[in-house]
């Protein structure tokens, strides 16, 4: 077993597409929708969640044999809450504006279902290194969806990307207008639905009957 054997590579890469946490496993949808009206908070959120999932997975995997089964949810919550507190303090110190935009959603990483889902389904039954890879993979799969949604919503909704104007002024002179609806909550849901549609047309085995 090398550090990156085939099995481990699979653990790392499958959450990016066929086993994506958001569009296939249905985990972590809440925050995927709420922070994506601009690209920048979406990227920051993706990175924060990746860090928390990876380290929570490692910690739980290290102590998995000593946790009594009945209280494991509370133990997991405490581990995750401690990690999120660290992330939140770091964001407050180094990225205060983004932290303001994310508002309560940094705290809500605690209840992000990706964390509980991966801890329950993977970290409780696997070693620390595999768990770390699984955490990174799932975090990146989540970040990927966030970035796609954030990209389209910011581009169509405000005509900017990361705050820079990308749609030239000439377009507006010809009567092009930003679609204000894209920034409002309902369009996030519909954007994700379109992603699911495209993803499932390409991967037919994921379709539901």
């Amino acid at each position: 077993m090398g550090l990156l054997s085939n099995k481990n590579k699979e653990i790392l890469t499958s959450p990016l597409s066929v086993n994506n946490p958001v569009v296939v496993q249905m985990l972590g949808i809440c925050s995927a929708l709420a922070v994506t009206s601009k690209l920048e908070p979406a990227i920051v959120m993706g990175i924060s969640v990746t860090a928390v999932v990876a380290f929570a997975n490692v910690i739980i995997s290290l102590i998995r044999n000593t946790i009594p089964n009945r209280i494991r949810i509370i133990v997991q919550l405490v581990v995750v809450a401690a990690l999120v507190t660290i992330v939140s303090e770091v964001l407050k110190a180094f990225a205060y504006d983004v932290n303001k935009q994310l508002s309560v959603f940094v705290g809500l990483i605690i209840t992000n279902c990706i964390l509980m889902g991966r801890l329950e389904a993977f970290a409780l039954g696997n070693g620390p290194w595999e768990s770390f890879l699984d955490g990174i993979g799932n975090g990146l799969g989540y970040a990927l969806i966030l970035v796609i949604v954030g990209f389209f919503r910011e581009l169509l909704g405000s005509g900017t990307l990361l705050g820079f104007q990308v749609i030239p002024q000439a377009f507006y002179d010809f009567g092009y207008a930003n679609n204000g609806l894209m920034i409002l909550p309902p369009m996030a849901l519909i954007t994700i639905a379109v992603i699911i549609w495209v993803h499932r047309s390409r991967n037919k085995e994921l379709q539901e009957n």
Partner: peptide, 19 residues
């Protein structure tokens, strides 16, 4: 449409209810 069944259509309906 098949790829939209289940999860996809649920999202669209939620979006419409949100509107």
């Amino acid at each position: 449409p098949k790829p939209l069944k289940g999860l996809g259509i649920t999202f669209i309906v939620t979006g419409l209810m949100g509107m």
